[in-house]
Amino acid sequence: MAIIEAHDLRKTYHSRSGDVHALAGLSLTVPEGTVKGLLGPNGAGKTTTVKVLNTLLRPDSGTATVAGVDVLHDPEGVRRVIGASGQYAAVDEHLTGRENLEMVGRLYHLGGSRSRERAKELLEQFDLTGAGDRPVKGFSGGMRRRIDLACALVNNPQILFLDEPTTGLDPRSRLGLWDVIKDLVAQGTTVLLTTQYLEEADYLADDISVIDHGTVIAEGTADELKAQVGGHRVVVTLVDSADADAARAVLERHGTDDVQQDTGGRTLSVPVTEGPGALQHVLADLASADVRLHDAGMRRPTLDDVFLRLTGREQADDTASELEESA
């Protein structure tokens, strides 16, 4: 059963330069116990969607229920069962990690002793016991995100809203946070996640909704979305760009579409019908043409390709393309 349902949400901001339709009839369903990823370029309406669902913003029209509770008619009922973690860490810098957690516990009306207990539990769970009694001001970016996420978990929420939880984090902190989120999902928490990072949606989300101009333009699992874009590509990187023409000729022979060459001129790729076989042929032909290779492989379409295809523009934050080793 769907634990989050939004139907035809609309929100327009009026500004001097004209109306901005942040939400233009957005509908969304998230089944209980799953992770839904909202993916879209900046200004697509991801954050607005989350803010409507976690009661921070009233839509102009449309309906939404969270855990069966109407977001518009009973916002407080919604607040009791959700946890929200924002784009930038909304924790009080001047309070210690423990004080932040205790404050949130008290505001959930858990009472003093239960709030203290819960703060202790969460500090342990998030590996912050050592730093827990220092003001958050001195925390690293990763620790700050962890304490922010911990604040969202004080009431053991059924549903967790994560708005760009790892934006600005270094790779190690990002992986750490992903593990924490995976654990929560394993325990049955439903997560609605917005992200700029395609690999993040790929890794965490069961289901992805691609949002652009305030509506959902595509939905499905990461694999389904990738399948929409097409099959494999063969990618080769040359040792010497002087070989580019020779390599291009080989790729054209085996590919199904135009050969793409990167700006440096040393990496070329072409879509192929049957990945591994095509790669073998390409490699054999390149060897006989005496073209030396730095790297060669087969790449499945990434969510970047999906993005480009669906929205017609590149993702702002270019994530590294995932090169898949050919088995």
Binding site: A67, G68, V69, G77, R80, H109, G111, N156, P157, Q158
Partner: peptide, 29 residues
Amino acid sequence: STDTAPPRSTEAAGSPGPVPVSPLSLWAG
């Protein structure tokens, strides 16, 4: 789907519910 009265399983979640207190003392807290 219209929301045809889903059973309120929502209250079951989370920690043992706080003891009922008057709204005024909750506010003061």
